[in-house]
């Protein structure tokens, strides 16, 4: 089974849920897809042994063949190419690697070269098969790194994907194709606001989903009421407890110290399995 953990709002506890669930189950592959700030490994301390670059293709101009006709820059909707008299400029950070400039060039003056925008790393920790992606500082496009990560998905394992916050392309790319999506929220007006946005996304992608309320006890009851009214299953509530908060503050997954939670996550997994089969 392939489960994505997403949220809408940042800081609700996606990584906490993903890690604690991963550590409670056996035969798990965990992918940290929040490539702009991959921090799951703070909980795991996996020694990352393998690293591979993620590259995108960007155009290179053969100035011998180019006659500065301007077709490439006219074509490029991202303005990654500029043609001025007797010079073509390439702005690599704007290029989306669509390949269109090469197609429209009448002089065959455009070739492509690889440019690294990030990397993915792999390691093992506590029996977990763990991957994370890292987008280089200054890069605008997270998707190629997330796509490279998802190529590593091993469907013979229980796959857990830790998604970035928000509702834009990196989130969609992460959760797309998952069997189930857990939406983590907190019981506050902010949590509810962004939860509603996240629900729209998963519905649009036809992914079955349920909600985990983290820090239950703070805020108000509006998240719960909303879920009840909309018939969204509340899968689990994690109390706003000092013990859990303290473990978090030290980077310790709470299932390692409070073993009843391990059972809770196994139950959660079985419940999700049931939801999917239903």
């Amino acid at each position: 089974m392939n489960i994505a953990v997403a949220s809408g709002k940042g800081g609700t506890g996606k990584t906490t849920i993903a890690i604690n669930m991963a550590l409670s189950l056996g035969n798990v592959q965990l992918l940290d897809c929040d490539v702009e700030e991959p921090n799951a490994n703070i909980f795991l301390n996996a020694k990352m042994e393998k690293s591979e670059d993620v590259t995108i293709m960007i155009p290179e101009i053969d100035e011998e063949k180019c006659d500065y006709c301007d077709k490439c820059s006219e074509f490029c909707m991202y303005n990654a190419l500029a043609v001025v008299p007797s010079k073509v400029l390439v702005f690599p950070e704007l290029c989306h690697s669509c390949g269109g400039c090469k197609l429209v060039c009448p002089k065959d003056a455009i070739s492509y070269r690889e440019r690294a925008i990030g990397r993915i790393e792999h390691g093992y920790a506590k029996g977990l098969d763990f991957y994370h992606g890292i987008l280089n500082v200054g890069e605008a496009m997270a998707l190629p790194v997330i796509k490279a990560l998802k190529k590593k998905v091993n469907n013979s394992k229980e796959v857990i994907l830790d998604a970035p916050p928000g509702t834009s392309c990196p989130v969609i790319e992460t959760i797309r194709g998952s069997d189930y999506c857990i939406l983590v929220t907190e019981p506050t007006p902010f949590g509810l606001h962004d939860l509603k946005l996240a629900v729209e996304v998963v519905k649009h992608l036809y992914i079955p989903f349920g909600v985990i309320i983290n820090r239950d006890g703070v805020g108000d009851k509006k998240v719960e009421l909303h879920c009840r009214n909309e018939k969204i299953p509340i899968l689990m509530k994690i109390p706003h407890s000092e013990e859990i908060a303290q473990l978090y503050s030290k980077g310790i997954p709470f299932v390692n110290e409070i073993s009843v939670w391990r059972e809770e996550f196994i139950k959660l997994y079985k419940q999700i399995q049931g939801e999917i089969e239903r």
Binding site: Y78, A82, V84, L89, L94
Partner: peptide, 15 residues
Amino acid sequence: MASGGAGIQAAQTVA
């Protein structure tokens, strides 16, 4: 109103 690279496009236009 370009989503990105407005300066690049504008520079080509005036050039």
